[in-house]
Nucleic acid binder design. Structure first.
Length: 592
RNA sequence: GCCUCCAUAGCUCAGCUGGAUAGAGCAACGGUUUUCUAAACCGUGGGUCACAGGUUCGAAUCCUGUUGGGGGUACCA
């Protein structure tokens, strides 16, 4: 039982003993004591005054005295207005280091038997990944790691959007204008090559529209009648009819894209256990339509199209199947949701998808609930904000995107330059250098994207480079490297026994108190589906460590017990930094 | 029109289910290295928490309204 839990359990007893009143544990409010006051844990006593019928100050004094008497770790307290600040013995904090923080499993929950699927990335195979996808990938990966640390069995899934008219556009443009260009021949990464033709299609398509408009057609007519779009539609039909030429072309070009994605995924450090392909799943969902009709959840309109009426839930009527019997987006998603559940039977299913689809998922989940799917309550849309440029939204077709590969390369190059300027790589082999630059560059990028609350939109200014100082990934990586350096110089031996030898310095106590929070932060991050909580915690911890490092000598401590304690404290901090960063998908170096 | 999300320092962001004098980083200015990595540490300046009401011992936080911005409201995905 943690000390917080002990205090929380003691409070109702205190109230009942002092004031003969009943208060439940959840009516009390514990918080960390603010820096400027003495103590580590604070009880807010305002709520208690209602039953004590005394001033906040007097209530605090009485509760404080009671707690000190009943909980040996509490060695003192002070009362300021409605705040009762409890001083916990230094020895308690010291012992936490020994009994908890240095444990390799610190912050990692026991397996809980729950199964969670995290679907993320879900790219289109007609263009390369951009900064928005990076945010998606990092969020998905990190949330999966955080859930795993909380004892869940996690299945990372990727639903690849490899089908549809947009794919045909790239294929058609390549056929017409590509002259047989291949990644091998041109040296272009496969996904970039395909993306290039997607852009070419759009350009040529616009030209045709302009011609038609010059001939007197309206905007809408021109859009519909341009020969290129008609050809693309024909191609889609031929494809669905099983035309082998089209399918072969699709396979070839998709292969290029996958090879390209694989490289980018590797650089991002993300992985997947299960791939779903829309070309396999796009016909799914029709059973569910039947099911919904027979259950009376859906209804048919005279033209034969199938709908659901969600007006009672404050939403609209929604089409779920076209009159000609073909699926729409939500039909597929209904089917895919069922398929995923049939495959894995998970308790929770998370969709990492941008907030422009909030409405879609609201409807999707509601439909599944109305269909009586027992697993519908475990569905969760992890909605995140767009990454915007100062000029506004990124648009692939118009080429106003920050390309994922370019950005990654740029970050690594900047890391290299910064490191060389600082002259930090003496004695590194070429291989070690390459690895280090990658670690730092990616660390800066990942931290930059993950430290922001997912649902908030994010502004990225390509003209302003991502920082390497202050609240950044490299700052935390640096702190870790710094600790490793001290430990290796001291030939730190973790087997040596820790012995309490007297009072703690303020910075030592602050570090110990902060370390105690790690498991709760990991738990909270899972509940909130928010890697940002981990990022902020890890930053605070690194800051506290640097302060401690600056104020207290470690290697030069006179007392061997103190020296060993400070080394152990350093080791525990390094371990938590490494774990926390690991949950963000960020590696930490031992030297930098 | 309707739905939904957002608004905190010059900039980028924290601020947990309401709690103490609203915090960081960047940028600006000043200081710290014969001592364990200066990608660090310390300090100074910088705020009507968009605005107006309400709820209460207490509101950046909860409620209502207003303004401004994003997204959605497709037989696209």
């Amino acid at each position: 039982m943690t000390l917080e839990a002990q205090i929380l359990a003691a409070l109702p007893k205190a109230v009942s003993s002092l004031y003969q009143a009943e208060m439940a544990e959840n009516q009390f409010n514990l918080q960390e004591t603010r820096k400027e006051f003495e103590g580590q844990i604070t009880v807010v006593t305002f709520p208690i005054t209602r039953v004590s019928k005394k001033s906040p100050e007097q209530t605090g004094e009485e509760i404080g005295a009671y707690l000190q008497e009943h909980i040996p770790e509490i060695v003192g307290f002070n009362v300021i207005k409605g705040f009762l600040n409890l001083c916990i013995s230094d020895e308690y904090w010291f012992n936490q280091l020994k009994s908890a923080y240095l444990n390799p499993n610190f912050g990692k929950a026991q397996a809980n038997g729950r199964k969670v699927m995290v679907e993320y990335s879900s790219p289109n195979t007609n263009k390369p990944l951009h900064l928005g996808h990076i945010r998606n990938n990092l969020l998905g990966f990190s949330v999966a790691e955080i859930l795993a640390a909380n004892g869940n069995e996690v299945i990372k899934a990727n639903l690849v959007n490899d089908r549809g008219i947009h794919i045909c556009k790239s294929m058609l443009a390549w056929q017409k204008f590509g002259n047989g260009e291949t990644p091998e021949a041109s040296g272009l990464k496969g996904d970039h090559l395909v993306g290039k033709y997607y852009v070419i299609f759009d350009k040529e398509y616009k030209k045709q529209q302009d011609l038609l408009k010059a001939e007197g057609q309206t905007e809408d007519e021109a859009k519909k009648n341009a020969p290129l779009i008609l050809e693309a539609q024909e191609m889609l039909q031929a494809w669905e009819a099983g035309d082998t030429d089209v399918i072969d072309l699709w396979k070839k070009m998709n292969g290029w894209v996958y090879a390209g994605f694989e490289q980018t995924y590797a650089k991002l450090g993300v992985d997947f256990k299960k791939f779903y392909y829309e070309s396999d799943t796009y016909l799914l969902g029709k059973d569910i339509i039947e099911e919904g009709l027979s259950k009376g959840v859906f209804f048919k309109k005279p033209d034969g199209s199938v709908w659901i009426d969600l007006t009672a839930d404050g939403l609209d009527e929604k089409l779920v199947l076209r009159a000609d019997g073909t699926s729409v987006y939500i039909t597929q998603d209904l089917g895919t949701a069922q398929l995923k559940y049939d495959d894995f039977g998970m308790d929770e299913s998370i969709y990492v998808v941008g907030n422009e689809q909030d409405y879609h998922f609201k409807v999707l989940f509601l439909i599944l609930e109305k269909l009586g799917k027992s697993w519908a309550k475990g569905l969760y849309h992890l909605s995140y904000g767009m990454v915007d440029l100062p000029s506004g939204k990124m648009k692939s077709r118009e080429g106003t995107v920050v390309d994922a590969d370019d950005l990654i390369d740029e970050m690594v190059a900047t890391a290299k330059q910064r490191t060389e300027e600082l002259g930090k790589v003496d004695g590194f082999s070429e291989e070690e250098k390459t690895k280090l630059y990658q670690m730092i560059g990616m660390g800066a990028l990942k931290y930059f994207l993950l430290k922001v609350e997912p649902k908030k939109r994010l502004l990225f200014d390509p003209n302003e480079s991502i920082d390497f100082q202050g609240n950044t990934g490299p700052f935390i990586q640096y702190t870790h490297a710094r600790i490793c350096s001290v430990l290796s110089k001291a030939a730190y031996n973790e087997q040596t026994e820790l012995q309490y030898s007297g009072n703690l310095a303020d910075t030592e106590r602050d570090l110990l108190v902060s370390l105690a929070n790690y498991p709760a932060v990991v738990e909270n991050a899972a509940q909130e589906h928010s890697p940002a909580l981990i990022a902020n915690y890890v930053y605070e911890l690194a800051k506290l460590y640097n302060k401690f490092y600056h104020e207290e000598p470690i290697l030069k401590s006179e007392d061997t017990l103190v020296k060993h304690f400070r080394l152990s404290l350093s080791a525990a901090t390094a371990a938590v930094l490494k774990k926390g960063m690991g949950l963000l998908g960020i590696q930490v170096p031992e030297r930098m």
